[in-house]
Design a protein around this nucleic acid. Structure first.
Length: 363
DNA sequence: AATGCGGGGAT
DNA sequence: ATCCCAGCATT
């Protein structure tokens, strides 16, 4: 979409002003000191974008600092162990991101000379990088002209253009992509300002055009914003259809040996908490007793019950019922192939452990 | 087109 | 207690 031929058309005149107004606001009010902006290398931008998927900035910053301190460049990540990568990710959630990141780094060493490719399709071909993440990397690290469409931009554009419908549906998402592409193609967006433009959209969405209580009167776009004009900023974007989450229970077995080491078990490579280390888990008390008798010397009835732990996932709720035994040994015929491992307390921080289990063990 | 996949911040 | 966040992969 180019400039209007003469003057500003009443309905769409705001569209040509989108980028300039956003940039002017960004220069004075945007975030210019996020950790991945200094230096803004492709590797650091990539890592930040992956960590920021479905995760807020305040949660990410500490993880980002620790990760780049341990693995400062792409080749270091490629040659790191999966164990180290998962340990650095431990507590951040969505662990497939870490496995994909690791695999993508190896692919870059194999196929791209140890660097991220400066090409949208080549980036999207890497595991864990979709269209929006690829565009964010290219625009922020290289200044290339690509549109992003993350949660912030979806919210800003749904309001600015008055787009109805939940953005999770392909139909609505397609509309939003079209608007995002139109704005980034505007001649009013200077060639040298793509990194700032991309950051500015996310900053606006994160600081002013927030989900609840948007600060419309401070917004540089509010005079052209359809939602604001119609008093619907509070209703857009349309919320996701509600659903009641299923409830599940699990028994958690906290076993310590004579030296106070803790028995951990590595979870299967797929599913929830894939490949992470957790306390042995059973679906109910009967299965817990059976597993204890078959695998350990622990007397099932001797376990001390601990307070239940409520943990919410995005798709179900889990109530964990922990019990604890001391002075336990494994039975002779239990091999190493069960993914079982005695772990000293000091060793816990070097392993990928789900957040609620880590909290329990450190309580 | 729908679902699986964490954890925490905001209200 | 509820929603959803700098999404992507899989089915």
């Amino acid at each position: 979409m180019g400039r209007q031929p003469h003057g500003a058309a009443p309905e769409t005149g705001g569209a040509a002003d989108f980028a300039p107004r956003l940039l002017a606001w960004f220069d004075g009010h945007g975030r210019h000191d996020l950790p991945w902006q200094h230096p803004r290398t492709p590797y650091r931008v990539w890592l930040s974008e992956i960590m920021l998927q479905q995760t807020q900035v305040a949660t990410v910053t500490g993880y980002f600092e620790r990760f780049v301190a341990a693995l400062p460049e792409l080749p270091a990540l490629a040659s790191a162990s999966q164990e180290q990568v998962l340990a650095l990710w431990s507590g951040l959630g969505y662990y497939a991101r870490a496995r994909n990141l690791h695999a993508a780094a190896k692919a870059c060493v194999e196929r791209h000379g140890g660097e991220l490719p400066r090409d949208l399709d080549a980036l999207v071909a890497l595991p864990g990088i979709g269209r929006s993440t690829a565009a964010a990397i290219l625009s922020q690290a290289w200044g290339d002209r690509h549109a992003i469409l993350d949660g912030n931009v979806k919210r800003v554009l749904a309001r600015y253009h008055g787009v109805d419908g939940w953005p999770g549906t392909p139909k609505v998402e397609k509309k939003l992509w079209a608007f995002a592409e139109a704005h980034v193609a505007s001649p009013a967006l200077p060639d040298d300002r793509l990194p700032d433009y991309t950051q500015a959209q996310m900053d606006l969405g994160a600081t002013l055009c927030t989900r609840a209580n948007p600060a419309c009167l401070l917004c540089p776009l509010h005079t052209d914003c359809v939602a604001h004009r119609e008093g619907r900023a509070g209703e857009l974007p349309t919320p996701r259809p509600g659903k009641t989450l299923p409830q599940r229970e699990a028994q958690v077995l906290w076993l310590e040996d004579a030296q106070g080491r803790i028995l951990l078990q590595q979870r299967p490579p797929a599913g929830i908490w894939a490949a992470l280390w957790t306390l042995p888990q059973a679906d109910d008390e009967a299965q817990a007793r059976q597993w204890l008798e078959r695998t350990t010397t622990a007397a099932p009835a001797a376990g001390a019950s601990l307070p239940a732990i409520a943990h919410a996932f995005s798709h179900y709720r889990l109530t964990l019922h922990p019990r604890r035994w001391h002075g336990v040994a494994l039975r002779d015929r239990v091999g190493d192939n069960d993914g079982l491992r005695w772990v000293a307390r000091g060793e816990l921080r070097s392993l990928g452990i789900p957040a609620p289990i880590r909290r329990l063990l450190e309580s």
